[in-house]
Structure formats: C-alpha cells, structure tokens
C-alpha cells in the first residue's frame, strides 16, 4: 500500500495542473517575450487563467480559445513526434496526417476542457535555466488560496524561429509528454506495431470525451 499510496499522493493534483498548464499554453500565445523564457511563461499563465475564469464562455468557446492558445504557444509538432518514440518512422503519410490532428484534438478535448473549476490559484514564476541556446526550463509554482501547499510546475521551452514554444511540462515530478510517449508506444507495441491501433484509441478517447463530457467528474464536487 505505501508504494501505491505514495504515488497517488504525488499525482493527486496532476490532472488539474495539466489542464491548467495546458490552458496556459494557449494563454501565452501573443506573448512577444521572445528572449525571456520567464516572461513567456508568465504571459501564458495570464492568458490561460483569463480563459479558465471566463464564466460567460460556453464550453465550446472555451475549447476554441484553448485550441488557439495551444497552437500559438506549444510546439505541437515536436510533442507529437516525441510521443511516437521508436515508432516515429512507421506511419504512412496518411496515418501521420490523421495522427497530428488527433493529437491536437486529444489535448484540447480530453485534457483541457476538463478544467472547469478555477479558484483563484496563482502561477508564480520562480527561475529559468538555459540548455544550450535554444532550450530553457522555467520553474514555477501554482499557489492556492488557503493553506494548501503549492504545486511545482516546470516548463520545458524550445525556441523555434520567432520565439519560445512549450515542449513539455513537469507537474510534481512528472513530465506529461514523456507519459504520453510511454503510453502511445505501449499501445502500438501491444498491437504488434500496428499504427492504426493508436489512431483508434485516440479516436475512441476523444469520442468518449465529447459524449460523456464531464459526467462522473462533476458528481464528485
């Protein structure tokens, strides 16, 4: 039990943060903080929180706002390529095209739109560290009103062309893109290397998210 339990404790705020931080992606979109990774993350946070806390928005509008933000601030192609791991070269051009659009939908519909409750959490940017000329890691904390201890969030940024883009996010020690890569390759491997299996699983999950939407989660509080 301790093993399992401690894992649960660690990942407890994970999805919330994932959603928030993905939301943050979208937020940072117009950030012209080309050279300052901290300012970039800050701007993303501001925009994401604006989307989350906009009570007037319909779910559809929120979804579209998130999608725009994601496109503008995340290096989606790199994330999608990374998530394929050793299977990067296996899909046909048609499969690849579908995979890329499914991944975007997966992130927007399955992760981000789950984020419905915003309670005045704040994102505090703490420090930035460079890796070569083109990558940076920005450390930050989500702070909660009331006594709850803060949650650490690290942002792995990659400079591409005009400015920084988000490549991966680490929430309490867990890299989200690495988790996706592990899960995606597991699905392909378990179906004997059949790339279509991954597409099917992605479609099914997106479908579930569209139909079931927040049922089950809403029940809890």
């Amino acid at each position: 039990m301790p093993r399992h339990a401690s894992m649960r404790a660690v990942i407890a705020p994970l999805v919330f943060c994932a959603a928030l931080t993905l939301g943050l992606f979208h937020a940072a979109a117009p950030a012209r903080a080309n050279d300052d990774p901290k300012a970039f993350v800050d701007a993303v946070a501001v925009r994401a929180i604006a989307i989350i806390s906009d009570d007037a928005a319909t779910p559809k509008q929120r979804e579209e706002a998130f999608r725009d933000l994601l496109r503008e601030t995340a290096d989606l192609d790199r994330v999608a390529a990374f998530a394929l791991g050793q299977y990067l070269r296996t899909p046909t051009p048609e499969q690849l095209a579908e995979y890329r659009s499914l991944v975007e939908n997966f992130i927007v519909k399955v992760y981000v739109t789950r984020l419905t409750d915003y309670n005045n959490e704040k994102l505090e940017v703490l420090s930035a560290q460079m890796r070569g000329d083109t990558q940076a890691i920005v450390k930050s904390e989500i702070r909660f009103p009331g006594g709850r201890p803060p949650v650490t969030v690290d942002w792995w940024l990659v400079k591409s062309g005009d400015g920084y883009r988000i490549f991966d996010i680490n929430v309490v020690g867990i890299w989200l893109a690495q988790e996706q890569r592990s899960t995606f390759s597991s699905v392909i491997r378990n179906s004997g290397g059949n790339f279509d299996a991954l597409l099917e699983h992605l479609r099914a999950q997106i479908d579930k998210a569209e139909k079931g939407d927040l049922s089950g989660i809403a029940k809890l509080d």
């Binding site: 705020p13 994932a18 699905v187």
Partner: peptide, 23 residues
C-alpha cells in the same frame, strides 16, 4: 484524496495500465 485525480487520469489516458506504469 485522489478520487478526482484518478478519475481524470483514467479519462485522459488511452491505455490506463500503461499510463499508471509510467506515472
């Protein structure tokens, strides 16, 4: 303490077993 989190992780995973293993 993980009611909501676990539900959400399950929903956001295309293979819950593999996700839990990696997490």
């Amino acid at each position: 303490r993980s009611l909501k989190t676990f539900d959400q992780i399950e929903r956001t995973s295309i293979d819950f077993y593999a996700t839990v293993r990696n997490l």
